[in-house]
Amino acid sequence: MKSDADAPERWVDEHGSALYRYALLRLRDPHKAEEMVQETFLAALQARERFSGESSLRTWLTGILRHKILDLFRREARTLALDDVPEAQQGDVGLIAESFTAAGRWSATLGDWGDPQQALEQGQFWAVLQTCLDRLPERLARLFVLREIMETESEEICQDLAITPTNLWTMLYRARMGLRQCLDRNWVGKARG
C-alpha cells in the first residue's frame, strides 16, 4: 500500500490551500505566504524519511511551516526592530490619547458586546476580526500574531526579536486597544443596525 508520503506532488493539491491559509493569517502577505508554503514542501521532501506517520501528514507539514514562519520573523526582526524604538519611546499618541480624558477616564462609553460565547458563534464576528487585524500597523500586528495566534510566550518573543518586555507589553497593549476599538465600531455598531 502506498502512503501519502510517497507522492510529494500530490501533497500540493491536498494540503496546499490549508497551508497557504495558515501562512497568510500569520504573515499577512500573499507572496510571502506562497513562498513559505513552497519552502515547506521542499523541506518536507528532503525530510520525508523522518515522517513517522504518528501524526497526520497535515499536522507534520503544518509543524514545518510554523518553524519556517518563526525563522522568517527572526530574520526580519532586525530590520523591523529598528523603527521599533522611536514608536515605543513616544508618548501616548492617536488612539490611546483619544480614548481617555486628561484625567485618565474613558472618553466614551464602551460598547456592550453581549454574551461572549454568542459572539464567537457569529460568522460576522470573525470577518470583522480579520478586517480589524489587517488594519493594525505592520509591527504591532506581527507581535500580536506571534503572541496571540502562534501563542508564543512573552519571554521567547523578547529573546527572538531582541526587544525588552516593557516594550513588548506596550506594543501588545496598543494592539489590543486598536483591535477592541475597531471591533466596537465595526462589529457591535453593525450588529445594532
Binding site: 491559509r21 500573499p30 461572549p116 459572539a119 464567537l120 476580526l129 483591535l179 471591533l183
Partner: peptide
Amino acid sequence: QIDLLRLALRKLATEADADPHAPAL
C-alpha cells in the same frame, strides 16, 4: 472584551481553516 479578544484570536486559526470563502493557493 480583552479576555474575549484573547479567546477569539486563539480560535481564529481554526475558524479560518473552516471558512469556505477563505483564500486558496
